[in-house]
Design a protein around this nucleic acid. Sequence first.
DNA 1: CTTTTTGCAAATGATTTGCATTAAC
DNA 2: GTTAATGCAAATCATTTGCAAAAAG
Lengths: 150, 150
Amino acid sequence: MATATPATPDQDLTALLRAANLRVTSQRLIIHRVMRDLDRHVTAEEVAKRAARRLPGLSLPTVYSTLELLEGLGLLRRVPLATGAVLWDPRLTEHHHAACRECGRLIDLDVPVDTAPGLRAARARGFEPDGAEMVVLGRCAECSRSAKTA
Amino acid sequence: MATATPATPDQDLTALLRAANLRVTSQRLIIHRVMRDLDRHVTAEEVAKRAARRLPGLSLPTVYSTLELLEGLGLLRRVPLATGAVLWDPRLTEHHHAACRECGRLIDLDVPVDTAPGLRAARARGFEPDGAEMVVLGRCAECSRSAKTA
DNA sequence: CTTTTTGCAAATGATTTGCATTAAC
DNA sequence: GTTAATGCAAATCATTTGCAAAAAG
């Protein structure tokens, strides 16, 4: 029987881990909680710094593997930047990004985009798509401002 | 007066370099030529390997800086993968990609996507967009096949 | 008690940097 | 001749790996 009570993030994660026969550790709970609290894209390093505040001794390798684990559980999304850097995004609702070519800044775009043609084209090529993201490239407000000044 | 003769890639690059007060070197010409000949996204390493065949002694740092230079001139596009890797794409016409989460494979999608809403939203946030790309994420044909077998 | 997960330290691998030399102009 | 571009070797930096110790179940 399904529970009708809305689950907390911790309960969600616990349930997913159990279902996958994985162990519920404080590291996993804390890292997940940090991401949920931040509610914006961050680097692995920033996650490590914040999570270590709540769990001293937490190691970087654990942060990396946990982020990947949470991605696999569908609780996070990995966002590759044009600079080659990688960010982690706890927002699960489909949204898109604008990335600054100059400083790498990434902002959320909460605008609907018709991804259907892309998904269709991918399927036609044998792909099994599970999502599509648009990245708008250009110069952010700050960088265009300093470009004008310079 | 504008020339009516269609320019070769070499002439294009030469003109752009001159206009920017940059020097026309054999390294730049060869790397550009390699990209034009390949006409598909490749890693910097692959560019280096192929270009070195035509220009022995060509160094990796030169390849990296030249790829960035060509990007700045608008002759190439940098494509960050979900794996964090970076590819370089000589195709200048707007197109989109499908990226395999498992093996990293990237395929071109030649399908029109309405990027206008994204561009508009970015402008509303102070961005000066110069393009938008959609990335479809999922599993490529090969990887879904082996997943079924496994 | 058994197996997974963690932390540590070291390894990796792509990309970048500093600097002397070479090539463009 | 002057200045920019290259090659080389070394540095960097995020990420990954191997393995013994600790924690989960």
